[in-house]
Simulated scan of single mutants.
Amino acid sequence: MFNVKQICGAVTGLFLSSSAVWSATCADLEKQGLTYDNMKSTLSSVVSLDNGGLGFPMWLTLVDGSGTICNVTNSLSPSQDVTADIWLGSRNISAQKANAANAFSTGDLALSTANLYTATQPSGSLYGLQASNPIDPTLSYGGSAIKFGAKNDPLKGKRIGGINVFGGGLALYNSAKQKVGAIGVSGDTSCTDHVVAWKVRELLAGGAFAVKNVPAGVSPGNNDAMIQDIVKDNGIGNQASLSGFGHPTCLNNPGPGVNAGSIYGAVQQ
């Protein structure tokens, strides 16, 4: 017969061995190389490249597996002003994108925020998703602007929520193909946001979270690339995505020469 101690031990072991109780934390991600300094230097190096779009400065947010914000940074130089030289509204958008990519990707399927665009339009199968997990304004607008994008950004350690359904948010997977969090990039056109996020993910922590770790996705490459397959429907002006996961093209659309394989069907405009 089992005694109470043995039963309690067995139950405890069952819960500890269950994958349902495992979640990557900000501390875990920092141990894996996702530090503030690594994020800032990687973002700055990528923004200096040709990524299409407008060539604007960018914001980058990292969340852990629970959606808690680990770090927020940007590509501004020390002489630039966070309230004048970058889209200030994109700080919250980058956090929303990170939250959305984390919230709607799993260990089996990665969905970039770009993949959510078509389904969330009126008459789409996910219409209304963008309002399902609203951002918490009491948390997202707090703190001094002097700290925005710094190591002690007021968003750090907070879970502000928010859903964004255009390019710039990507889930992160480790070498075991476990989802460990997500990044969100904002500050330029949505297509360029996606391209910059993709390139940043390829380089972060020495490529430890590159697309090769993505378990599966809806793009033809079986990953979370942006799909630009929205076409005119029957020539009458209605737009339709052939895959159901399409995203519109953007101003100075990042073509094959600059998007690093992050956009399927991309054309240079």
Score class of each variant (00 low, 15 high):
N253F: 06
S44C: 10
T120S: 13
H194L: 06
S18K: 11
P256F: 12
A95N: 04
R91T: 04
V258M: 04
S94A: 15
L88M: 09
N164S: 13
T106L: 06
T83Y: 09
L34G: 00
V180G: 00
G9K: 14
D153W: 00
R201Y: 04
L62D: 02
G13N: 13
D108E: 15
D28Q: 04
Q178R: 15
T68A: 08
S243I: 06
V214W: 03
P220C: 12
Q121H: 10
K156H: 10
K179S: 04
I236A: 14
I69D: 02
S23G: 07
I7G: 08
G67C: 03
P248M: 10
S243K: 04
V185Y: 04
I236V: 15
N259T: 10
L109P: 02
I160F: 03
G237E: 12
N222L: 11
P154K: 02
G237D: 13
T249W: 09
L49A: 14
V21K: 03
P248L: 09
A95H: 01
S77L: 14
G265P: 00
V4L: 15
S219T: 05
G162Q: 05
F245V: 03
K179P: 02
G124Y: 09
S90D: 12
Q121G: 10
L172T: 01
A20I: 14
S132R: 08
G207S: 11
I236S: 14
V21P: 00
S94C: 04
C26T: 03
S105K: 05
S41L: 09
N71M: 06
S75W: 01
A197I: 11
E202K: 05
G142P: 01
G55S: 07
T249Y: 05
V258L: 05
G206C: 02
T120K: 01
V47G: 01
G142C: 02
L116N: 01
N164E: 14
C250R: 07
Y127V: 13
S77I: 09
G128H: 14
A182L: 04
V46T: 04
M58F: 06
A260Y: 08
L242M: 13
P57W: 02
K212F: 05
F209S: 00
I160H: 07
M58N: 06
N253A: 09
F148L: 10
T42G: 04
P134D: 11
L139N: 06
H194W: 01
A266T: 02
F166P: 00
T189G: 05
N102K: 12
N152V: 05
G261T: 06
D50K: 13
C250T: 06
A205T: 06
M226R: 05
A119F: 07
T118V: 11
C250K: 06
D224T: 08
W87F: 15
S140M: 13
G157A: 12
G52A: 07
G184M: 00
